[in-house]
Each structure stands twice: as structure tokens, then as C-alpha cells.
């Protein structure tokens, strides 16, 4: 913790989203896609990258226009900017892989209402310069992608015994079908949050004696 704080602000803008302020595990933002599209690792990864792309672009544009946007209509403007980039991503994915577009379905369009993106536009990009806003978007986006990949990998491994479509578990393994069903999304995220809470509680417990000494 202490080492991170001594780092230059630029590095901190990038790093804070990865773990310390991870949008999913710590801030609990953008839950809908986290639960909905993570039934396989590849779906989670592509959704994460699509969100990362929109987040960086919208942060850049919001930061560039931050002095031109009137305060009263800023939220509406942010949403319009985000919706434009999401439309671009939607058509881009359709062009690259129709199969992926089908499996992600309406959730690509639903990136518009991902509170993470609007939250970063409002809380960070509209108050900082372009370079810091890009780094922030990159960090938060990577943190989000990391979380989605974790969820997708766990669910795919337990639910169908594969990882990125390659069988990794022996044939004797009986897949837990529940993990790829909707309920499994809730269970996996709940279990991951338990693990993270536990790790933080242990870290806090071990940090106290050090500070006293």
C-alpha cells in the first residue's frame, strides 16, 4: 500500500483500477454484464475488452470536452457520447465475429447503461486532463476485464470442464451444470467476494501489529 502511494500519480491512475479500486470486486459497479455474459472465459474476455474500448474512448472525449459541456446537461451529454461509441463497438464486433455477436447478444448494447462508464466520466474524466483520463480508463477497463475473465474462467472450468473451449479437466470430472446457468453467476461472484473479503480481513489483521511496532 505504502509503496503504491509513493509512486508517480500517472502510474497510480493506471494501477488503482486493477486491484485497490477494482470496479467489480471493490466498487461493485457494472454488475449486469459481470453476471450475464461470464458463462465462458472467451465471452467474459471479449465483453471486458469491448467495455475497455468504450471506457477509454469516452473518457478521452469527455475529458477533451470538459470545459465545453454545460454543467446542467452534462449527464445527458455523457450518455450520448457513450451511446455513440457503443454503437461503433456493436457494429465492429458484428464485423469481426458474428458468432461472438450472437453469444453476447443485447449485452453489447447494454454497455451504455453500465454504471462504471458513466461513473468514471462523471467522477474522473470531467475533472482531469486527457492523459490522466486515458490512463484511468485503461486501468479501470483492465480491472473490469480481469474480473470478467476470472468469473468466466471459474464458471467455464467448473461448468463444462473446459477453458477457452479446450478440455482441461479429465473425462471423469462431472461438470457442475449449475455454474453455467444464471444461478451460477450469483454463486461465483458471491464466492469471489467472500475470498476477497477474507484476504482483506487477514491483511488488516496482520497490518495492525506492524503499525504499532
Amino acid at each position: 500500500m505504502a509503496i503504491e502511494q509513493r509512486d508517480a500519480p500517472a502510474a497510480d491512475d493506471l494501477l488503482k483500477g486493477l486491484w485497490r479500486e477494482n470496479p467489480v470486486f471493490v466498487q461493485l459497479l457494472g454488475m449486469c454484464p459481470v453476471l450475464a455474459v461470464t458463462n465462458s472465459a472467451i465471452n467474459g474476455l471479449s465483453m471486458g475488452i469491448a467495455t475497455l474500448f468504450v471506457l477509454v474512448l469516452s473518457n478521452t472525449l469527455v475529458s477533451l470536452l470538459r470545459r465545453a459541456i454545460p454543467r446542467e446537461v452534462r449527464i445527458a451529454t455523457f450518455i450520448l457520447i457513450i451511446a455513440s461509441f457503443v454503437t461503433v463497438v456493436d457494429y465492429l464486433i458484428q464485423a469481426v465475429s458474428l458468432e461472438l455477436h450472437k453469444s453476447l447478444g443485447a449485452f453489447i448494447s447494454l454497455i451504455v447503461v453500465n454504471c462504471l462508464i458513466l461513473g468514471r466520466a462523471e467522477a474522473f474524466a470531467s475533472r482531469h486532463g486527457v492523459s490522466r483520463a486515458v490512463l484511468d480508463g485503461l486501468g479501470m477497463g483492465l480491472g473490469f476485464t480481469f474480473a470478467l475473465l476470472c468469473m468466466g474462467a471459474v464458471r467455464e472450468l467448473l461448468g463444462s470442464g473446459t477453458l477457452f473451449g479446450v478440455a482441461v479437466l479429465p473425462d471423469a470430472f462431472q461438470p457442475w451444470v449449475v455454474m453455467v446457468l444464471p444461478g451460477g453467476g450469483f454463486f461465483t461472484l458471491g464466492a469471489l467476494l467472500l475470498l476477497i473479503n477474507h484476504m482483506q480481513a487477514r491483511r488488516a489483521a496482520s497490518a495492525i501489529p506492524v503499525e504499532q511496532a
Binding site: 446457468l181 444464471p182 444461478g183 453467476g185 450469483f186 454463486f187 458471491g190 467476494l193
Partner: peptide, 22 residues
């Protein structure tokens, strides 16, 4: 348990609810 308070236990409950809706 303290570790499970808040979001974690809520998600677990939601998972069971989702299973029953199946």
C-alpha cells in the same frame, strides 16, 4: 459470519432464488 456480510451473502441468496425460478 463477518466475512460474508453485505454483498457476498446477498449474491448467494440471489443465486438460490435464481435456481428456484428455474
Amino acid at each position: 459470519p463477518d466475512v460474508a456480510r453485505g454483498a457476498a451473502i446477498t449474491l448467494m441468496v440471489a443465486g438460490i432464488l435464481s435456481l428456484s425460478f428455474m
